[in-house]
Write a protein that binds this DNA or RNA. Structure first.
Lengths: 342, 342
DNA sequence: TTGTATGCGTTATCAA
DNA sequence: TTGATAACGCATACAA
């Protein structure tokens, strides 16, 4: 008894309702092309059997899935959460479903995930940043899967993107910091290899130094992995220099919060003893104590616009267009001028 | 020119390599049942064409996908991130893929997502908490899709779970707080409807009060939505009572951090003026200032064990077994005895 | 408005 | 070791 009966198919429903499979299919996909009476019969059968369409079969027959994949480096911290949330909500509004995968910042895993999502029938893909093997873009193209890069905007890149200019944003923030009189700077960043956002931020910072007549080579740089602990460790290392920096930039808010915590543990006051600057403006930044001075990234707007762009290209066939969004400094409490020489 | 050529299929590869589709399929799934020579030919063809198998077709033919779905209430904050990460990693190690979906804490969306994942061929599902319509479990059963509940452990529930006892954990924490002399308590929690974890924590708190001879009815309860802002607002409300509480419990760390921030803004010292207690012990808790006293949840262990359990049942056919993991108080800096009456 | 028939890209059984 | 071939569950062009 209780033998596991096979899950019902379109055919079962058709039989139960006494109609053809075509009618059941229509009933599900174009309810208005079916008579009221028939529809009722079919719906009753569907509920009775607990039928639910088989996605794979449907995808195979229809050659589209109304599914868009999003591949992000990590779900561990909230960096991408807000943007994805907005992305998903907009998608949902248009009847699309989002599939997420994360890569732990590893290129090989990313490629694996891309293939996996494409194989799963994703109609389009959302990718973070431009940096990846060219063959991946070729693959995507031959598969006819549009891919939109986000979290970055590079007018020179071949791949269309909806994002912001990491370089310009960091440069602007750094200019403000330097204008305050800081001359001894440090940067705690994610590893730059394979991470164009991190690289752009680093270069943007150096550009600001250069523009202000400082030697960019003097910037103390530590590359680590995103994470509060790592931010703390890196901060300790940075401050142990013979001549410790008066302002420490961080590649993102997670690192900055780690730095902040470490500063506290080292008995350093922020921003009196040292300024700490983040990037991303995730919720964490406002909660940190003191509230973090950081670069505000338009997470929700970015997710929303990316979704619209993808849906549009899917429905119109018109190639994706890049969109630049602003990312600007937001000054809170962790930045002040360097200590005056008494 | 540049006409979008159709994506290559098994058939194309077979033709290109001069073998049958069966051989190509075997080559991909059981490489050792194919001669070296043939394998080389096939692989060459695959690379040449940029072939990648169609998941839907494969799922349909093989009747399994090596995919496990995870449906969580939210990705906005990091509550589930750590657990999911561990879940995914373990899955990956066994050749399984994780698909995530979030529900924004809405039952109707959850049901939609469950159906969507099942339709997508998820071999099994990971669900958060027990609370949901019975028909969903029926649906899952008729579909033959094993579902494992996590983030909760209720020995009385029908559904198997790998989690911790929210009631007992909160009760234990509350007992410690009460032992410090607190008699005027408040709780800021997520809405309890449809959220068994929140409810269990609330009841656990009341149980501790009762056990200590206090009237559980005196507990001031505010239900809100998870979020730092909401935590802050709720805290302000709680403290505006004629007789404000000396200890404020929070349903999770996110709310607690909001409360912490609000306390600062109101000029209240924590824990001198008021104690604040969180739940979950996400990374945020250690970063908060002061570091949060909270209930530690074994996120990674939970995710890991859940993955193992699901894989096991999938491969052995043996029904899922529930597993209880410990969740215990961790005392940091936001809890102290109530102010002595001067 | 409804039904028939075919194809979608794999896997798996059975022969060869 | 390899090749035919029959499912798998659904969508859709076409016919009725």
């Amino acid at each position: 008894m209780n033998s596991k009966r096979p899950t019902p198919t379109l055919n079962d429903v058709a039989t139960e309702a006494g109609v053809s499979t075509a009618t059941v299919s229509r009933c599900l996909n174009f309810p208005d092309r079916v008579s009221q009476r028939t529809r009722d019969k079919v719906m009753t059968a569907i509920n009775l059997l607990g039928y639910s369409p088989n996605f794979g079969a449907s995808a195979m027959a229809a050659r589209r899935t109304k599914t868009i994949g999003a591949i992000i480096p990590t779900m561990e911290n909230a960096i991408f959460a807000r943007g994805l949330q907005a992305f998903q909500e907009t998608l949902r509004g248009y009847g699309y479903t989002m599939l997420v995968a994360s890569t732990a910042y590893r290129a090989d895993i990313e490629e694996e995930q891309i293939r996996s999502l494409v194989a799963r029938g994703a109609d389009a893909l959302l990718l973070i940043g431009h940096d990846r093997d060219a063959q991946i873009y070729t693959f995507l193209e031959t598969q006819g899967v549009p891919a939109l890069v986000t979290w970055a905007f590079d007018p020179h890149a071949e791949q269309p993107s909806v994002g912001f200019d990491n370089h310009a944003a960091m440069r602007e923030m750094a200019a403000s910091v330097i204008a305050l009189g800081h001359e001894n700077l440090a940067l705690i960043t994610a590893r730059c290899a394979g991470n164009d956002r991190a690289r752009a931020r680093l270069v943007g910072l150096r550009a600001a130094m250069e523009a202000a007549g400082q030697d960019p080579e003097l910037l103390q740089v530590i590359q680590t992995t995103y994470g509060i602990e790592n931010g703390a460790a890196a901060f300790a290392e940075v401050m142990s220099a013979k001549k410790p920096p008066t302002a420490v930039f961080c590649g993102n808010d997670v690192l900055a919060v780690g730095a902040l915590r470490q500063a506290r543990e080292m008995g350093l006051s922020v921003p009196e003893d040292v300024s700490i600057i983040g990037f991303d403006d995730i919720e964490l930044a406002q909660v940190a104590y003191p509230p973090l001075t950081t670069v505000h990234v338009p997470h929700a707007e970015m997710g929303h616009r990316a979704a619209l762009a993808l849906i549009d290209t899917l429905q119109s066939g018109i190639p994706l267009q890049s969109i630049a969004l602003p990312a600007t400094p937001v000054f809170r409490k962790t930045l002040a001028g360097p200590k005056a020489v008494k």
